[in-house]
């Protein structure tokens, strides 16, 4: 096995909003150098909370209750704001979910693409602009000059997501976190964006944490995957293995509901009630065990 880039160990989080309800239940996953790891689960499963914990942007009403996030031998959860700021944008970048809100409406694309390069890579204004241009060409934007001189509202959703991907990979980070990067896009655009992320990732040897509610999407792009249910990893393994022989009934149900994973979102069916019941029992047993460990 190749070198580890990111290791999440027993990450737990609780919501301070409703009675310390657990949001993440001892989540562990590891991403190797150059690997794409998918986190799949229904809405509210805690996928974004994992991403936010890595990026140090946990909301004030959520608290990390335990665990470690090791990146390059350092525990990100133990870093000071200043130390983390040094890593963000240089070693770790984010492709956000919604390209319509991810841009500052009153700054040109140019400014928003080059500021990170200037701050984190020490580029001059001119170098950064040239680099931004090259990056846009890399994500197959035909008229990069026009795009650079545009304001966000002048670009389509798919175009904006390309720009965001270009900006994220353009910082030459070691890890890119993509939190549902295609959810807000048309199905046809989704495919292009997935191909693009995969191509950039391979070309730059970037590790990617790819978050999605859609097993079909994750199956397409990820080397390994974790299935998350109510903040607990219920299945983990290489994508090929999991698809061939899922160990958890929930994963089976997801696969059954969505057999054509080459076609995201085709014929989604609800998870059978007995599968949900089994999952709930598993979560309850886990919580009992956690309480015993705490008090015993």
């Amino acid at each position: 096995m190749s070198a580890l880039r990111l290791a999440i160990e027993a990450l737990s989080a609780i919501s301070l909003r409703d009675g310390n309800r657990p949001i993440l239940r001892r989540v562990s996953l590891a991403i190797a150098v150059g690997e794409v790891h998918g986190v799949v689960g229904e809405s509210g499963a805690g996928k974004s909370t994992i991403a936010k914990a890595i990026l140090g942007i946990i909301p004030s009403q959520v608290r990390v209750a335990g665990g470690r996030i090791t990146f390059e031998g350092r525990d990100l959860l133990a870093l000071s704001t200043n130390e983390l700021r040094g890593i963000l944008g240089r070693d770790i970048a984010l492709v956000p979910q919604d390209p319509s809100t991810a841009f500052n409406p009153s700054r040109r694309i140019d400014a928003q693409m080059t500021d990170g390069l200037r701050l984190k890579r020490g580029f001059s204004a001119k170098e950064a602009r040239m680099r931004a241009r090259a990056l846009l060409e890399e994500v197959q934007i035909r008229d990069p000059e026009r795009v650079l001189n545009s304001y966000p509202h002048q670009l389509s959703g798919g175009m904006r997501q390309r720009v965001l991907i270009a900006a994220a990979f353009g910082l030459e980070p070691k890890l890119v976190i993509a939190d549902e990067p295609t959810t807000a896009l048309d199905v046809t655009v989704q495919k292009q964006i997935l191909r693009l992320i995969r191509a950039l990732q391979e070309r730059h040897g970037t590790s990617v944490l790819f978050v999605s509610h859609d097993l079909g999407v994750v199956a397409k792009i990820c080397d390994r995957l974790s299935v998350l249910y109510m903040g607990k990893v219920v299945e983990q393994g290489s994508t090929a293995d999991v698809l061939a022989a899922p160990s958890n009934a929930y994963t089976k149900a997801l696969l059954a509901a969505n057999p054509r994973y080459d076609r995201p979102d085709s014929g989604l069916e609800p998870t059978p009630p007995e599968v949900i019941a089994a999952l709930r029992a598993e979560i309850a047993a886990f919580d009992r065990g956690a309480r015993q460990a705490e008090h015993g």
Binding site: L55, R85, G89, N104, R107, D115, L119, K120
Partner: peptide, 21 residues
């Protein structure tokens, strides 16, 4: 807003986030 969050993730300081974003 999301764009401020994204800028924070680029590693900008708070004052710059306020003034620039």
């Amino acid at each position: 807003q999301d764009y401020v969050l994204l800028a924070r993730i680029k590693g900008f300081r708070e004052l710059r986030l306020v003034l620039q974003e």
